[in-house]
């Protein structure tokens, strides 16, 4: 269970999070939606301990990751898998090398077992036989799939996805979403995803949280969010343009 309590974060004079509260149930897929630049990635970076809040807490099974340092924080992070927006693949390594890296360095598995699991992970994301290619040699969609394989190969309990489908065509967006859903059914991890792929995310989310002006404006199952009378939510999911003031 992940519990975010009254999270506050400002960069200089820009207030990004203004007392945000959010609960993520164990084993669920929670998707945080909201406008670009609204603080979704900032929220995610707090959850994975890359940013410290000005106030508030992030509790992961009772442990406050905003107060943890060093080994204690690493202990929590060992349970994590993270898919970054751009993939964050190590460009000096092949795709297989990227997937093998956490197995070798984090879990310290033997070479034979690493090779078996890498092959299985790449097959799982539909990239069998592509392991010898470097990230620069494959397409954007393939890079995202390698990033997903790398995040999931250690079988983490909690997986964070930071806009995993940004910049992909609609077919690839659906492919990646169905891949995430399929892997979630198989591995039963808790997923927190930041996305603005409307309406596609309604097919995979258990819970959708709408972030607006630094707070969660509405949270609930996809059907509830889709039927929400909240004008902010309605405007966002329908993609209605902003009205000029006084119009």
């Amino acid at each position: 269970m992940i519990k975010v309590e009254r999270l506050v974060k400002a960069f200089g004079r820009q207030q990004v999070l203004r007392g945000l509260d959010l609960d993520v149930a164990t084993g669920s897929i929670t998707v945080v939606i909201g406008r670009s630049g609204g603080g979704k990635s900032v929220l995610l970076r707090h959850l994975i301990g890359l940013l410290r809040p000005d106030a508030g807490r992030v509790l992961v099974d009772g442990a406050d990751v905003t107060r943890l340092h060093g080994r204690a924080l690493d202990e929590v992070r060992r349970r994590y898998g993270v898919v970054f927006q751009g993939g964050a693949l190590f460009d000096s390594m092949t795709c297989a090398g990227n997937v093998a890296f956490p197995l070798r360095e984090k879990l310290r598995l033997r070479a034979a077992e690493v090779a078996t699991r890498v092959e299985a992970a790449l097959t799982q994301v539909g990239l069998e036989g592509m392991g010898s290619k470097y990230p620069a040699e494959v397409s954007g969609g393939m890079r995202k799939r390698v990033a997903i394989a790398r995040a999931l190969v250690t079988e983490p309990e909690i997986v964070f996805f930071d806009e995993p489908t940004t910049g992909l065509d609609p077919i690839l967006v659906n492919t990646i979403h169905h891949l995430i859903l399929e892997l979630h059914r198989k591995l039963r991890f808790t997923a927190v995803m930041v996305s603005h792929e409307i309406p596609e995310i309604f097919e995979i989310a258990d819970t959708v949280a709408m972030l607006h002006e630094g707070r969660i404006a509405e949270v609930g199952p996809p059907a509830v969010i889709q039927a929400s009378p909240n004008p902010v939510v309605r405007q966002f999911i329908r993609g209605e343009p902003e009205r000029a003031e006084g119009a």
């Binding site: 992070r77 993270v82 964050a88 190590f90 460009d91 956490p102 360095e105």
Partner: peptide, 16 residues
């Protein structure tokens, strides 16, 4: 470049 492409963050969140 590793920093701006989040490769260093990727290492950090792997607890490395």
């Amino acid at each position: 470049i590793m920093r701006i492409t989040e490769q260093i963050d990727a290492l950090t969140v792997m607890a490395l």
